[in-house]
């Protein structure tokens, strides 16, 4: 009798502790959890996801969502503690096992790679082999999904970060192979990472200019920093003696990135190269917005 009372009290306390999560509807609890995650309230969000996980039938879409949400909360709750991160990894694995081809499973795989790669605390050691396995699983299982591009980027970086020439080359090969796929949504990011590695890590100007040029064509992953990439490409092309390419990049800075702060320097260099540069017109209102 005592045991039953204690059990009832414990269950009641769980639900009382959840406060607003007494909802019988997993969808409502998941929505509440997601809303709290948006404001970085991971501890409170975890309560909602935990409640939804109990309410939803195991393996159902709602259960996968709740499990995934709970895992994210455990991984991101501050202060970061390794046992909590281990709990997150176990939950992500459940999503991978029961999620089949669901996008949640793909993201869970990627997140497992992130957990393996990151140094969560000073006592943590990155496991790059393990990270690569998870990233590869994403690329192999969802080859045509956008997330495969992100996983390829992550996988390439696991090699480049060793800073050893052979590894850096292996990483660049992964990045370039994925970036070259037609209509790859992550192409800009992949070419940028490859171009930077060619220059910063390997000191190879020609390959850096080639990849950075492809990045600019594909669309820079961070438009607010695009001018810095174009500048790097311009300087490297200039130093390699590729005058035409350099002039093209300098012109692009003036015409496409007049607000970057680098346009005047680009004008100066064009003059030094014997070409009259276009004028700087600050992008007060881009032409397309006038239409």
């Amino acid at each position: 009798m005592h045991t039953r009372l204690i059990l009832a009290a414990a269950l009641a306390s769980v639900f009382c502790g959840c406060g607003e999560t007494t909802s019988k509807d997993p969808a409502t609890a998941i929505a509440a959890g997601a809303g709290l995650c948006a404001s970085y309230n991971f501890d409170r969000a975890a309560e909602h996801f935990a409640a939804a996980r109990m309410l939803a039938p195991a393996g159902s879409e709602a259960w996968l969502q709740a499990t995934f949400g709970l895992a994210v909360c455990r991984q991101q709750e501050v202060p970061i503690e390794l046992p909590r991160v281990a709990e997150a990894a176990a939950l992500f694995k459940e999503v991978v096992e029961k999620g089949g081809a669901s996008p949640l499973a793909a993201q869970a795989c990627l997140n497992l790679g992130r957990i393996a790669e990151l140094r969560d605390t000073s006592a943590d050691t990155p496991d790059l082999e393990e990270a690569r396995r998870w990233y590869k699983q994403v690329v192999d299982t969802w080859p045509d999904a956008a997330i495969a591009g992100e996983a390829s980027l992550r996988m390439g970086v696991t090699w480049i970060q060793s800073l050893e020439r052979k590894d850096v080359e292996a990483g660049i090969a992964i990045l370039e192979a994925r970036a070259a796929r037609p209509n790859e949504p992550w192409a800009g990011a992949l070419w940028k990472q490859a171009g930077d590695a060619w220059w910063v890590n390997l000191g190879d100007r020609a390959n850096a200019v080639r990849c950075l040029g492809r990045c600019i064509e594909a669309g820079h992953p961070d438009p607010s920093r695009a001018a810095l990439t174009v500048w790097r490409a311009a300087k490297l092309a200039d130093e390699s003696g590729d005058r035409d390419a350099a002039l093209g990049f300098y012109r692009r800075i003036i015409e496409r990135h007049p607000n970057s702060g680098m346009a005047w320097d680009a004008q100066q260099r064009m003059r030094e190269l014997g070409v009259e540069p276009p004028p700087i017109k600050l992008a007060v209102m881009p032409e397309e917005k006038k239409a």
Binding site: L118, L153, S162, L163, W186, A189, Q193, P221, D222, S224
Partner: peptide, 23 residues
Amino acid sequence: YRAVVSTQSQGLNGMVNEAMRRC
């Protein structure tokens, strides 16, 4: 999202400063 992931990736998992110093 891509901008933030790309920026983070360029951190080379904490090795970017060492890469820059070698450069």
